[in-house]
Write a protein that binds this DNA or RNA. Sequence first.
DNA 1: AGACAGCATTAACCTATGTTAAAAATAACG
DNA 2: CGTTATTTTTAACATAGGTTAATGCTGTCT
Lengths: 172, 172
Amino acid sequence: MELQSYIAKNGTTINIEKGQQVFTQGELCEHVYLVKTGLLKAFYLTENGKETIKSFIQSGTIIGSLNAAHCQVPSTFSLEALEQCRLVQIPLNELLALSKESISISQEFIQILLSLSLKKERREFELLTLSASQRFDNLRNTDPELVKKLTQNDIAKYLGITPVALSRIKHQ
Amino acid sequence: MELQSYIAKNGTTINIEKGQQVFTQGELCEHVYLVKTGLLKAFYLTENGKETIKSFIQSGTIIGSLNAAHCQVPSTFSLEALEQCRLVQIPLNELLALSKESISISQEFIQILLSLSLKKERREFELLTLSASQRFDNLRNTDPELVKKLTQNDIAKYLGITPVALSRIKHQ
DNA sequence: AGACAGCATTAACCTATGTTAAAAATAACG
DNA sequence: CGTTATTTTTAACATAGGTTAATGCTGTCT
């Protein structure tokens, strides 16, 4: 947890109101964020204006558009606060540079990336093999607290279905 | 590319016949593989015996059940040769240990994990926002050569639909 | 060539989810 | 409190994709 404390010390704290965006799809975003308090959603907006939620981000997590920050390209998604949030912001470059100096930071980075890839793999598996209602059950079992905090609209967008379909699924 | 040459030197070369499995879902798999030649598929088998393909692996790629190897848990997927393959095998532990000694190896690891996460993100995006036929178009545009080599069955399993549905999609 | 195996197509019918729109419930606010 | 917004439910219909099964195609072995 050297990394987290480095960020806490050297990053700049920002407050985000509910509904505000931390960064926006299509824009450059060179930072990485450590979530101190609050809850956020990372989401895509497709050409035809449809929103789909990539993930929900809870406190204690490090989040950022890694590829955007790393490759200096526009972010493919937006990050928005679902509640009032307190974040600590730091340029990814700074962390990467740091990791070049310190083995233990590198190692931590590797750990973070490995666990991120685990998360993505689970998600991929679910999208590929489970029906919408199975995915919903999964979410409810995995993180019932989170489900309580979310609006049905956002849950649906996360599951990849419409709120109407989710309402139907619930009544069974 | 220090990592690749380390693997090439210190790993053990194995040959896999078409149809053979490199490792199997449910088993431990502590190795990571560098694909020298050939083509493979990584796939899940669900409880009800349905197969879905996670990804196709072409030569030059490093593949393995990272989480299985790292956390010493059974792999969640199998790896099978679609053509006769030549691989170089090495324990992930050995690479992780190595990365603790060498900053440049750590850095390479980080690069690999970052690009892996980019790939997964694209896949997640597609599964979440595109229809089956859009996903098929995408695949055809991104890697037409690959599509030629694959059976329609495998393409369908990769897209998350049945071969019947894929056949329908093609005729439009 | 003939016989078989493995793929691909087609068709008929079924189910899950999308779409639109209206009604009902809940939350937010003066 | 009563009034507006916002979210959720319900209903009716449309569509994509699943299921099963039959048919056709291609290649391989003898």
